[in-house]
């Protein structure tokens, strides 16, 4: 691999990693507060991407469509929690997990029924898809924009988590939901904020994904969601920083392994799974994770 190809792959990896990171944050935050693997989270990125496309097809400018799509996705996230998860807070955990998988399947198939199962072309404005060249490397401008926006968004999330009252409550909730209730914090409001943040980031991730691979379909969230979850576990479930690191590691690995060993290309979607297994085998708490599993007697 010469230097220019290396550079190109590096930027591609950063761009792919950004998307995984954005989606992984939602998984990790919801797991932190509810101890729930939110299976529907991957599908929220699909909702975000689809809504952007549908609204811009109605004639609205792309930027406005993005904004509205993010809001709609956040609303879907909140509604999921209110309708499906909240009534089951004190139920056995397996009920919650079954419900989550039900929501995921519902979203996938609802979108299939309404918009059809055939992949659709995603048209992004030209300034996002323009190709520029760096020496002899040709790159779409999106591979620069995506990681930049991701870092910006990440900074905002970290600011919320560490500098605001709500952020502190979110982190407290990750340790013990009952303590937080005792502290007089409205746990349900905190959980809602988590769903808003997580869903919005998933929507942004989905839109980025749609720009980079300009075709979307109702099932696009499954594999990406699985990978993002693996990234969250790799980084240490419950840790936002870990989710970002995990996302980037996974992004770079996929890009570089396929670039170096093209014969493994067919297994690209399987790397995340092996990461997941390896992490569970050797370091279940992930890179930055705390031990959230400790039995409480």
């Amino acid at each position: 691999m010469d230097f220019q190809t290396f550079l190109q792959q590096l930027v591609n990896g950063a761009s792919l990693g950004s998307m995984y990171a954005l989606i992984a944050i939602g998984y990790t935050m919801v797991y932190g507060v509810l101890r729930l693997i939110n299976f529907a989270h991957g599908d929220l990125m699909m909702v975000g991407a689809f809504m952007t496309l549908i609204i811009s097809e109605l004639g609205l400018p792309f930027e406005a469509s993005v904004l509205i799509a993010i809001i709609i996705t956040a609303l879907v996230g909140i509604l999921t929690d209110k309708i499906a998860y909240k009534p089951l807070r004190d139920a056995p955990k397996i009920s919650l997990l079954i419900t989550a998988i039900g929501i995921s399947f519902f979203l996938e198939n609802l979108f299939t029924v309404v918009f059809g199962g055939i992949p659709r072309a995603f048209k992004a404005p030209e300034y996002l898809t323009k190709i520029f060249h760096l020496g002899e490397v040709y790159l779409p401008i999106s591979v620069i924009i995506i990681p930049t926006v991701t870092l910006l968004v990440l900074a905002i999330v970290l600011w919320i988590l560490y500098k605001t009252k709500y952020g502190m409550a979110i982190r407290a909730l990750a340790f013990d939901i009952n303590t937080v209730r005792l502290m007089g914090i409205n746990a349900d409001r905190i959980i809602m904020i988590v769903f808003i943040i997580g869903s919005s980031l998933a929507a942004i991730g989905g839109i980025f994904y749609a720009i980079s691979y300009p075709s979307i379909d109702p099932l696009m969230g499954i594999i990406v969601g699985l990978k993002a979850f693996a990234a969250a576990v790799l980084g240490g479930i419950g840790s936002v920083g870990g989710a970002v690191i995990g996302g980037f590691i996974l992004g770079f690995t996929e890009i570089f392994v396929v670039a170096s060993f093209p014969e493994l290309g067919g297994y690209k979607d399987a790397f995340a799974f092996f990461f997941l297994i390896l992490v569970l085998l050797f370091k279940p708490t992930g890179i930055m994770g705390q031990d959230l599993e400790r039995g409480r007697f």
Partner: peptide
């Protein structure tokens, strides 16, 4: 089971869900 049940069963669902997709990738490749 070896990696999954070493931690609490939480991850079983996602590992098995992933496995369902991986097996397809293996069959194709």
């Amino acid at each position: 089971a070896l990696p999954v049940f070493r931690v609490r069963g939480d991850y079983l669902a996602i590992v098995t869900l992933g496995f369902g997709f991986i097996i397809r990738i293996f069959a194709i490749n």
